[in-house]
Design a protein around this nucleic acid. Structure first.
Length: 779
DNA sequence: TGTTATTGTGTTTTT
DNA sequence: CACAATAACA
C-alpha cells in the first residue's frame, strides 16, 4: 500500500525536529518503520539510529517489521530499538559504576519495591502508622518521574507530615536500594539521565587523548536519528533522556494528544503540546486519515473526544464507509452483561471473525472475573492481558530470587525472600538478628550469615544457617564455573529442596507450581541456546522488564482477548465489546471524586480535577478507536463490585454518543438516581409521610431520571433536588437531618444502597461528615 | 518455628 | 470478595 501525502511527508522530512500528530488508526507505525527504513536506505548506519517505544511488545514488533522490510539489505540487529526502561538499563549496565550500580545490578519490580519499603518501615518503627508503604512508594515514584531528587519533595505539594515521611523513608529506601546494588523502575530513568548529564562536564585531564574520551560522551554523540513513539505518554525524565541522547540527532516524535492516558503515572501531555515551542524550527505534520475503523465508530469516537478542552484538535476521516451501527445495550446487572458478551462473541464467531480479533474491554481488572466465569461456563477459551503474569507467580519469583542472589550476593531482599523458602528453620527471629547486625555494620545479610554467632544466633539456628550459606556458595561457584543457565536453574531447584517441597505437598496447586517451574527451567535453557553470549544478568534484566504486553509465555493465540483499556492501547480488533460503561466505573469513581466534591462545595472544578476527567475521556476515546468494524457498548443497571451493590447510571461517555450512529437507545440526559431509603430509615421518617407503594420501579430505569446539570452551580443547601415524583420517600439535598453527636445538619449527598447507604451531612460549625444512614434521623 | 484460623481492609490504570 | 496481616495453636 502506498503512503498518503501526509505520511510520505513525515517519512521524508529531514533537517529539523519533527512532530507527527497521528490520530488513532492513521498508520503511525507504518510511518515510523518507513522512516527508519528510508534512513538506512540513505546510508545512515543502523547503529546510529534509536527508536524508542513504550512497551516491549511494540519494540519487538517494530524490529520485526524492520527486518521484513530491509531483508538482507541492512543488519537491523544493529538498530537500537527499545523501551525507555530497557534502553536505560542497557546504558546503566555498561556505564553505571559512576552512579553506583555494578554491571550486574538487579532491577526491582513493584513487588520487590514494596517489600523493601516495608523493611524500611520496620527498621524505622513506622509500621504502626496509618500510611502504607505503597503510598510512600507512589509519591517517591512521582518524584522520580518528574526528575526531582528527594530534597525536592516539597515540590510535590503534599501535606506537611507526608512530605516529611516521604523524605525520611524515601531516603533510607534509596540507601538500601543502592546497598543492594539494585534499581527500581523509576531509578532506571533517573540514573540514566544523571549519568548522561554528568558525562562531559568534568574537566578533561591535561594531555588526554581523544581515545580517552568518556564512553558516555560518545554515547551522547552516537545517534544521528532518534524516533520516539507514543510521545504523549512520556514523563519529564523520559523527555530529558531523549534530549540527552539526541545531542547530534534529528529528533522525530510521534504521538496523539487525544490518547494521553498515563497522566497518573507522571506523564505530561504538555510535553507533546509544547514540543514545537521547545524545538526551534520544528515541523508539525498531522495524520488524520483513518484506515482502521468504519464511519459510525469514528463518529462515536469524535463525539466523545470533542468535549475535551485543551487539545490540538484533529478530525479523523475514513474512506471505509459508515459500516455497522455501534450497538448499545443496557443490562440488568453484571451477570446479564457477561451473558450478553458471550452472545456477542458467538455472533462474531458465526460471522467467521477469528477469536483473536474479538476483544472485551473493561476499566479495571476487578471487572474481568464475572466475564471470565461466563466464558468458562460456555467452554470458550480466552486470553487475559495483564493481571498476574507468569513471572509474577510466587514460585517463579522465588526461583528468580535464588538466581539473583547468586548473581548479586548483596541483594538482601532476595536473601530474605528465600532464606526460609522452603522452610528450613530459619525464622523471623533469626533473620531479625542478622538484619540488625547487617544494618549496624553496613554489610550484606549473606555476609553476616557467615558468622551467625556475632549476630547472637544460637547453636541450632546457626547450624542451619551455615548449611544454607554453604549451599548458596556451592551454587554460586556453579554459576561462575559457567554452568549452562537452564541446568543451573534446575540444580538450584534441586539443591535448595524447593522442588521437592512442592512435590511433597501433593496438592493440585503445588502440582501446577512444579509445572511452572519446569517451564521456567525450559525457558531458561531455550534462552541460553538462543543467546549463547548472554549471561544470567541479561536474562534477569529481560525478565524484569517484560510486562503483560508481550503475552509470550501464556495466552492462547486463537482465543478471545480480555483486557483493560490501558493495555489495549496500540492494538486493534475487528470487534470490540466495551463493558461496564457506568458512572463510577468508567469514568472511574476516583476521577469523579473531584467533581462531586466541587458540587457539594458549590465551587468550580480545579484544574487537576478537570484534567483527571479529561484523561478518562481520552481513555474512552482510545477504547472506541480500537474497533475496526464492530463496536458493542454495554452498561448495567446494578453492579456487584467489591462485594457491594452499586446502582449504575449510564456513563457520560454513553450519553455523548450520537444517536444516529447507535443501535439501541442512547440514554438521554441523566442524573444520579435517588436511592430507595432503607427500611430502618424509612421507619423513622415521619415527614414527608410514606406514600403508598407505587409501581414506579417497574418502569424503564432510565425514563424517570432527569438530568439537572445546574446542581453543580447552585449551593447545595438550596437545591431541593427532585424526589422522583411517584417514588417512595426519598432523600433530597437540603433535607434536614439529626445525628446524636453532631446535632442537626443539612444533607448534601449520599452514596451506597441498603444498609450501606451513607449520608454526607453538613453540620454547621463542624463541616461535612459522612455517616451511615441508620445513625441519622430526618427532621 | 511453622501452620492454620481469623480478622480486617481495601478496591485503577503500568514500565 | 480476595487477600494480607495478625492471632492462636501445634
Amino acid at each position: 500500500m502506498q503512503l498518503n501525502p501526509a505520511q510520505q511527508a513525515a517519512v521524508d522530512h529531514r533537517g529539523s525536529p519533527l512532530l507527527v500528530l497521528a490520530g488513532a488508526g492513521t498508520g503511525k507505525t507504518r510511518v515510523i518503520t518507513h522512516r527508519v527504513a528510508a534512513l538506512m536506505d540513505e546510508g545512515v548506519p543502523p547503529w546510529r539510529i534509536l527508536a524508542v517505544t513504550f512497551t516491549n511488545k511494540a519494540a519487538a514488533e517494530m524490529r520485526a517489521r524492520m527486518e521484513k522490510m530491509c531483508e538482507g539489505k541492512v543488519d537491523v540487529s544493529q538498530l537500537w530499538v527499545g523501551t525507555f526502561h530497557s534502553i536505560s538499563a542497557r546504558i546503566l549496565r555498561r556505564h553505571g559504576e559512576s552512579v553506583g550500580l555494578s554491571r550486574n545490578f538487579a532491577i526491582y519490580d513493584t513487588d520487590d519495591q514494596t517489600r523493601l519499603m516495608k523493611r524500611v518501615f520496620k527498621e524505622m518503627n513506622r509500621d504502626d502508622e496509618q500510611i502504607k508503604p505503597r503510598a510512600i512508594l507512589g509519591h517517591l515514584d512521582q518524584l522520580k518521574n518528574r526528575g526531582l531528587t528527594i530534597d525536592q519533595v516539597d515540590q510535590l505539594g503534599l501535606e506537611g507530615f507526608m512530605t516529611r515521611l516521604v523524605a525520611l523513608l524515601g531516603r533510607r529506601y534509596q540507601e538500601l536500594l543502592r546497598a543492594a546494588d539494585a534499581s527500581d523502575f523509576g531509578d532506571l530513568l533517573v540514573l540514566a539521565v544523571k549519568l548522561l548529564e554528568k558525562a562531559g562536564t568534568e574537566q578533561p585531564r591535561p594531555g588526554a587523548q581523544l581515545v580517552d574520551v568518556d564512553p558516555v560522551v560518545g554515547l551522547k554523540r552516537r545517534f544521528l536519528h532518534v524516533v520516539v513513539d507514543e510521545y504523549q505518554d512520556t514523563n519529564p525524565v523520559q523527555a530529558r533522556l531523549v534530549e540527552l541522547l539526541s545531542q547530534r540527532a534529528q529528533l522525530c516524535v510521534v504521538g496523539d494528544d487525544d490518547q494521553a492516558i498515563y497522566g497518573w503515572r507522571g506523564a505530561d501531555v504538555s510535553q507533546i503540546l509544547g514540543f514545537p515551542d521547545r524545538q526551534p524550527g520544528c515541523e508539525l505534520i498531522r495524520l488524520e486519515q483513518n484506515y482502521r475503523s468504519t464511519g459510525h465508530i469514528l463518529h462515536c469516537a469524535d463525539a466523545i473526544i470533542r468535549r475535551n478542552e485543551g487539545r490540538l484538535g484533529k478530525t479523523l476521516w475514513s474512506e471505509l464507509g459508515d459500516g455497522a451501527l455501534v450497538v448499545l445495550r443496557a443490562c440488568e446487572d453484571e451477570r446479564e452483561e457477561a451473558r450478553f458478551v458471550v452472545n456477542e462473541i458467538l455472533d462474531a464467531l458465526n460471522e467467521d471473525i477469528p477469536p483473536e480479533e474479538i476483544a472485551v474491554f473493561y476499566r479495571t481488572h476487578a471487572q474481568s472475573r464475572v466475564i471470565e466465569q461466563q466464558l468458562t461456563d460456555n467452554g470458550m477459551r480466552y486470553a487475559i492481558f495483564g493481571g498476574l503474569g507468569f513471572f509474577e507467580r510466587k514460585e517463579i519469583k522465588d526461583a528468580l530470587a535464588y538466581l539473583r542472589l547468586l548473581q548479586n550476593p548483596a541483594s538482601d531482599l532476595d536473601f530474605t525472600r528465600i532464606v526460609n523458602e522452603p522452610a528450613r528453620g530459619i525464622g523471623d527471629t533469626t533473620v531479625g538478628r542478622l538484619t540488625a547486625l547487617a544494618a549496624n555494620r553496613n554489610v550484606a545479610l549473606l555476609e553476616v550469615a557467615r558468622n551467625p554467632e556475632e549476630a547472637g544466633v544460637s547453636g541450632a539456628a546457626a547450624k542451619r544457617l551455615a548449611l544454607f550459606v554453604a549451599m548458596i556458595d556451592e551454587l554460586t561457584a556453579r554459576l561462575h564455573a559457567g554452568t549452562p543457565l537452564g541446568q543451573l536453574a534446575a540444580e538450584v531447584l534441586e539443591r535448595t529442596g524447593y522442588r521437592d517441597a512442592l512435590v511433597q505437598e501433593g496438592s493440585e496447586e503445588s502440582e501446577a507450581r512444579v509445572e511452572n517451574l519446569d517451564e521456567f527451567v525450559g525457558a531458561l535453557t531455550e534462552f541460553a541456546q538462543d543467546n549463547p553470549e548472554q549471561t544470567l544478568a541479561d536474562y534477569l534484566e529481560q525478565v524484569s522488564l517484560v510486562s503483560d504486553a508481550d503475552g509470550g509465555g501464556r495466552g492462547e493465540v486463537r482465543a478471545v482477548r480480555l483486557m483493560t483499556i490501558h493495555s489495549a492501547k496500540g492494538l486493534e480488533f475487528e470487534k470490540v465489546i466495551l463493558t461496564g460503561m457506568e458512572e463510577k466505573v468508567f469514568p472511574h469513581s476516583r476521577s469523579i471524586a473531584g467533581e462531586e466534591a466541587a458540587r457539594e462545595e458549590g465551587r468550580r472544578l480545579r484544574p487537576e480535577e478537570r484534567a483527571q476527567l479529561e484523561e478518562e475521556r481520552r481513555l474512552a476515546y482510545v477504547a472506541v478507536t480500537r474497533a475496526k468494524r464492530q463496536l458493542v457498548v454495554t452498561y448495567a443497571r446494578r453492579r456487584r463490585l467489591y462485594n457491594q451493590e452499586f446502582i449504575g447510571t449510564p456513563s457520560r461517555f454513553v450519553r455523548d454518543l450520537p444517536p444516529d450512529s447507535v443501535r439501541g437507545r442512547v440514554p438521554g440526559v441523566v442524573r444520579r438516581e435517588a436511592p430507595a431509603v432503607p427500611a430502618q430509615l424509612q421507619a423513622m421518617l415521619s415527614s414527608p409521610p410514606p406514600r403508598p407503594a407505587a409501581p414506579a420501579r417497574e418502569r424503564s430505569w432510565n425514563s424517570d431520571i432527569v438530568y439537572d446539570e445546574g446542581v453543580a452551580a447552585r449551593p447545595a443547601a438550596r437545591t431541593r433536588a427532585p424526589i422522583a415524583s411517584d417514588d417512595a420517600p426519598s432523600l433530597y439535598k437540603g433535607m434536614q437531618v439529626r445525628h446524636r453527636q453532631y446535632g442537626e445538619g443539612t444533607l448534601v449527598g449520599w452514596d451506597g444502597t441498603g444498609s450501606n447507604l451513607k449520608l454526607a451531612i453538613n453540620f454547621p460549625g463542624v463541616g461535612v461528615k459522612t455517616i451511615l444512614a441508620r445513625f441519622c434521623e430526618p427532621l
